[in-house]
Amino acid sequence: MRVALALAGLALGLTGVIGYFAVVLGVPALVPFVRNHAAPNWVLVAAGLVLSVAAARRAAPGRKAVSRILLGANLGLAALFAVLLYVFLAVPGADGPAVGRPAPAFSLLDQAGKTVELADFRGSPVVLVFYRGHW
């Protein structure tokens, strides 16, 4: 039973981690919230860790090894998730253009090959989004 509890904990952790990337890649309507915060995923990972710890603590003396190995795997999974989200995907910061100053002018080609200038939009607000690209 303790092993089943530990396995359930690991399964929850895996669901949280794999679920993050499944949602980000596969369910666009949910993407902004889950992608930015990963909160539902961390709840699953945390719940999985609670189960794993409970299983390791309750295992009978002499039969703790499997539960401890599964707890270790779950801890490793949580650490990997944290590194992926907060270290691997981090980028250097930048100030960007100064707020309150005129936006730098541009004249660039759009996807139809048509020249688009910032001045074309004078009189209405413009949302300029910079993408990483290489789609």
Partner: peptide, 15 residues
């Protein structure tokens, strides 16, 4: 490449 960023410019061309 570009950093991912969003810039709001008002009707007068000010960030």
């Amino acid at each position: 490449i570009a950093l991912s960023a969003t810039v709001l410019i008002d009707a007068e061309g000010v960030v």
